[in-house]
Every structure is written in C-alpha cells, then in structure tokens.
C-alpha cells in the first residue's frame, strides 16, 4: 500500500535544505550559549537576514544577498551583545525585543515587495551549496570549541566567567565575539531560507523555524555533533509535514497535525534528555553561567 515515490530525491534535497537552515541558525546559537549568552531572538535574526538578502538579491544578485544577510545578522548579534553584556539587560528581554522589532521592521520594509526572486542560485544536482557550507561550519565550530585553546576560553567563559577572568581571559570580548558570530550565522541562515529554500518573500516567512532552532540547541546538550543529527531529523520532519505525499503517496493525515510534529518532538526529546539519569550518564550539562551577566566586582 505504501510505496516509495519517484519524488524521493527532490524531497531529500528539500529536507536537507531545511536542515541546513536549522543547523546554521542553531550552531550559531550554540556558540553564543557556550560563551554564556542566551539569544532567544533567532527568529528575529532570521527574519532580518531573509528580508535583507531578499531586497539585496533583487537589486544586485544573490551573492550580495548572502553577504548582506550575514552582515545584518552580525550587526544584530553585536547589538544583543551590547545590551546583554555591556548594559547587562536581561537577556531574554533583549532577545525578545530584537524579535519583536524584527517582525515590525521587516513587515514595513519588505512586505511591499512581496513576490518571487528574479534570479535563483545554482544547485549541485538539486542540492543547495549552502548545505556544504553548513557542514563545514559545524565541523569548524566543533573543532574550535573542543580542540583549540580559544575554544577552551569560550567554554570557560560560559561555565565560570569569574575564574576565566582571573586566568587572563577577556570575558567581555569573548562574549561579544561569540554573540556576533552567532548572529552572523543566524542572518546567513535567514538568507539561505529566503534565497535558496523559499525563493519568494511573503509576510513573515520564517514560520517558527527560528524557535525550533532554539529548541534544538537546548536538546543538543550544547554539542555540535548532536546538533547536526538533530537538525537532519528535524529538517526531515519539517519537510515531511509540508509534503508527506512526496514520500508516501496518499498519506492520510491532514496537514496541520504534521506541522505540530517538530515542536512536539522537541518537547518530548527535551524531557527525556532533561531527566537526571541522562544528564549523569553523559556528563553533559548546560553552560553554568548561561543567561547571567558577568559583573566584575
């Protein structure tokens, strides 16, 4: 009854694209959180990245779109760092502020140009080149975090900023750096969403992908490897929710039920992973100083 459809490969490329978007945004957030800063405004970063890249791509071509999308993300990351590290504003408020600002600004800015992109980006046998960039970024961030001196500094800042400061690490600078890079990756992921996955602007196009990326970081236990696997699974679930018939023709469940799946899955996995047994066995914990501003006394 259930048969594999000929649209399997197109489906695979699509879901890998969603995974790309998720993994880029999430790995940036992971880096940010490893340095002890939490940025709940990923959805806002992605919206800004998407809008900027869309408008730039319309005027100057897609390559510039990626560049400006990333740049705008980096700028927003820097702004979040300014608020949360220097001004020591509550980080959840600051992130929410960025997100609410993004929804307003992007609607005002890009909604009047609603429509498809003029030029599309080249693909490698149907697969978006950004996929390989995302893979490279995950490997680089994993390598930096676990195998280099600089990564040790980042992690120490996230775990115990006071001790890090005493041993000569510049806490403020490290947090600024990580938050800005995380923001840039969020903006880039928004650009990929717009220029590669959607290809057209519509009202608030992210549709909860940013929140999903945020959940992904939490249950990856702040490990890039697990994050990558999670993003692949979630990309699959997300795309499957949109077009289940491309794998199983005649799939019966109505659409909205499927759309809930990724979010439901996050809660379930998060619950399992948060139980004491899991945490102790894997000895993986969240960064100790996450969300707390560092105050040098």
């Amino acid at each position: 009854m259930i048969e594999i459809s000929p649209t399997l490969w197109p489906f695979t490329t699509r879901f890998l694209e969603v995974s790309t978007i998720l993994v880029l945004a999430a790995v940036g957030e992971l880096l940010t959180q490893r340095s002890g800063v939490i940025n709940v405004g990923i959805e806002g970063l992605m919206l800004f990245g998407a809008a900027t890249s869309f408008l730039t791509a319309q005027a100057f071509g897609p390559l510039w779109g990626f560049a400006t999308g990333t740049l705008v993300g980096a700028f927003l990351g820097l702004f979040h760092a300014m608020l949360s590290v220097s001004l020591r504003v509550n980080q959840i408020i600051s992130g929410m502020g960025v997100w609410l600002f993004a929804t307003g600004f992007v609607t005002y800015w890009a909604d009047r140009y609603t429509g498809p992109l003029k030029a599309t980006i080249p693909r490698i046998s149907g697969l978006t080149p950004a996929f390989f960039i995302a893979l490279a970024v995950v490997i680089i961030i994993w390598f930096v975090l676990t195998r280099t001196h600089f990564g040790l500094k980042i992690r120490s800042v996230g775990e115990n900023p006071a001790a890090a400061e005493v041993s000569g690490v510049n806490v403020t600078w490290t947090r600024y750096f990580c938050t800005t890079v995380g923001g840039a990756l969020g903006g880039f992921s928004g650009a990929v969403l717009m220029l590669s996955y959607l290809g057209a602007w519509s009202h608030l196009p992210t549709k909860g992908l940013g929140w999903l990326a945020f959940g992904l970081v939490m249950f990856s236990l702040w490990r890039p490897g697990i994050l990558l696997v999670g993003a692949l699974a979630f990309g699959f679930v997300w795309q499957f929710a949109i077009s289940p018939e491309s794998i199983f023709p005649g799939f019966p469940a109505p659409l909205p039920v499927n759309r809930m799946l990724p979010f439901l899955l996050t809660i379930i996995i998060l619950t399992i992973i948060s139980t004491e047994r899991f945490r102790r066995r894997w000895a993986l914990m969240k960064p100790e100083a996450l969300g707390q501003p560092y105050i040098k006394e």
């Binding site: 020591r88 408020i93 600002f101 929804t103 600004f105 609607t107 005002y108």
Partner: peptide, 16 residues
C-alpha cells in the same frame, strides 16, 4: 508594527 517593534526594543535597552 514598526512602531511597536521600536517601542519594544527601546524598553529592552532601558532595562539597563
């Protein structure tokens, strides 16, 4: 919406 967004981000900054 832009106005609302600007208010929210100013509020966030003024948390300082």
């Amino acid at each position: 919406f832009l106005f609302l967004g600007m208010i929210s981000i100013t509020f966030a900054a003024f948390q300082f």
